[in-house]
């Protein structure tokens, strides 16, 4: 049998318990999503609501940092390949996000959405890897310069780096589970349009707030896999690590 370092075994045991518990949180989230019917935007009531519709810009759009695409929200990460002795790994050197309020429109009406503090789960829209003989595009070079970062090492050779970008663009279809409440940016009666009176946002009691580009079925499928993987995988990892620890300690 290949000897496993005790640190990995303890990490496996702890990680297994963590996964096991996390599995139940995913299960709880799945049940919550299943239990809340989708509201038509025209008739959403105050409180936790589930809506599905198309993104419409409110007041202008943002430009995504790497691909320069028009969007209402983006997040990104930059990873760098680093070596320490015999080992090498990808290290995340910068992450960030930005968003602005936007409308979500279905076939009945539209409502304002503030993505601040939302758990945004959208698929990757852009990825680029730079390395030896492969410079990043101009937009990325400018971004790195503004953020005092460099894609070249001190010898002038390109570092191995990965750039990932996720964004929500106009006309994207979104699933949102969030709190419909008064729009704090408009005073009662001063709103130009009714669509701005109510805004979907993070609840005052920090209720669940998620935005996804998957539909409800897709989200539920993914949560089912996560929940059962977490619960059963976590249990197997915990017990497996424990058995090896006990064998190492000659207690088995």
């Amino acid at each position: 049998m290949i000897p496993i370092h005790p640190v990995y075994l303890i990490a496996g045991f702890g990680g297994g318990i963590f996964l096991f518990i996390k599995g139940f949180f995913w299960l709880k989230k799945k049940r919550l999503i299943e239990n809340i019917p989708t509201s038509k935007i025209r008739s959403i009531a105050m409180g936790l609501v589930e809506v599905y519709g198309e993104v419409v810009p409110w007041k202008g759009v943002l430009k995504s940092p790497f691909s320069n695409k028009e969007c209402v929200y983006y997040k990104f990460s930059i990873q760098e390949h680093r070596r320490t002795g015999k080992h090498s790994s990808w290290v995340t050197v910068k992450t960030g996000e930005a968003g602005m309020r936007f409308y979500l429109k279905d076939n009945t009406d539209k409502v304002l959405v503030d993505p601040t503090e939302a758990d945004v789960n959208v698929s990757q829209d852009y990825a680029f890897s730079s390395g030896f003989g492969k410079d990043p595009p101009l937009a990325i070079k400018q971004f790195l310069k503004v953020n005092n970062m460099n894609f070249e090492s001190f010898l002038g050779l390109n570092k191995q780096m990965k750039y990932h970008e996720y964004f929500i663009a106009p006309k994207d279809k979104l699933y949102i589970l969030g709190t419909a409440d008064d729009n704090p940016f408009v005073k009662d009666g001063n709103s130009i349009k009714n669509a701005e009176d109510i805004m979907i946002q993070k609840g005052k009691n920090k209720e669940i707030y998620m935005i996804s580009d998957k539909d409800e079925k897709g989200i539920l499928r993914s949560l089912t896999w996560k929940a059962f993987g977490g619960i059963f995988g976590g249990a197997v990892l915990t017990i497996g690590s424990l058995i090896i620890i006990l064998i190492d300690l000659k207690l088995l």
Partner: peptide, 10 residues
């Protein structure tokens, strides 16, 4: 003891 620990954890 080892078996008991496993049984308890399970």
């Amino acid at each position: 003891i080892g078996i008991w620990i496993i049984v308890l954890v399970v």
